[in-house]
């Protein structure tokens, strides 16, 4: 039944993502020649914070003159998601790559827990489930940080300094919906982890519950693949 639940959930997520793609494709892309100019001025590792505070009006004016963040065109993700914790340098898409890596890694530990469960190795199931939970919490922490940054820059459900309002609204809607799946996945994993610690499945004679939550967890990872593709790359 888990498979059919996930199938229905896949339909929900594809509706959200196709909706996003529809709105996304109905806007023209950021002007490529101006983007190329901007990339030359702001190479990887530029201190954007310092650049902005040296001349805030000039910085915003330069962006507006180029129409980079105009409401009529979709912003390039590299200019929106360019923060990294610990410094103010221009590191486009590096943080989201880290998040993706964390989620893939937690998916691997989950599948190792499932595999250990199939061999009835309780100790290994315990270790790998704990690692999965930690990975999930790390991912949630990263997402919270990213949201805080994005909201701090003025993006809300109803306003967006980076371009069309629908960009921010759909970003919060879809990543929020995915993040809530991650959160519920962590909670379910934690409950199953406690059961593993208590020896419930050892007594039952099989670790099928671990396999079931594993399916859910991998599905969350699968959805992230598409969220990553649509929101951060396209």
């Amino acid at each position: 039944m888990m498979w059919f639940f996930l199938l229905s959930d896949a339909f929900t997520f594809s509706s959200l993502l196709v909706g996003y793609a529809t709105v996304r494709f109905s806007f023209p892309q950021a002007n490529e020649t101006q983007m190329a100019e901007l990339r030359k001025e702001m190479p990887f590792g530029t201190d954007v914070h310092e650049m902005f505070h040296a001349n805030p009006d000039g910085f915003v004016g330069a962006m507006n003159d180029r129409g980079i963040f105009a409401e009529t065109q979709w912003p390039a993700p590299e200019l929106v998601f360019n923060h990294f914790p610990g410094h103010h340098l221009h590191w486009p898409l590096m943080f989201v790559s880290l998040m993706t890596f964390i989620l893939i890694m937690s998916s691997v530990t989950m599948v190792l827990a499932v595999e250990a469960g199939q061999r009835m190795e309780r100790k290994k199931v315990e270790i790998f489930m704990l690692l999965t939970i930690i990975g999930g919490l790390m991912f949630l922490g990263c997402q919270a940080w990213e949201w805080t940054k994005f909201i701090g820059e003025g993006a809300k459900l109803y306003t967006n300094p980076f371009g069309p309002v629908t960009f921010a609204a759909l970003f919060f809607l879809v990543t929020g919906f995915h993040g809530f799946h991650v959160l519920s996945g962590v909670v379910i994993n934690f409950i199953i982890y406690l059961n593993v610690l208590r020896g419930t499945y050892e007594e039952r004679g099989h670790y099928e519950m671990v396999e079931k939550v594993g399916l859910y967890w991998h599905f969350v990872d699968l959805v992230w693949v598409f969220v990553f593709t649509f929101f951060y790359l396209i």
């Binding site: 998916s107 691997v108 989950m110 599948v111 499932v114 396999e211 594993g214 399916l215 991998h218 599905f219 990872d221 699968l222 693949v225 598409f226």
Partner: peptide, 11 residues
């Protein structure tokens, strides 16, 4: 990527 996750990780 999705196919690899579904066929390998989700068995």
């Amino acid at each position: 990527k999705a196919a690899f996750i579904v066929y390998s990780f989700m068995h």
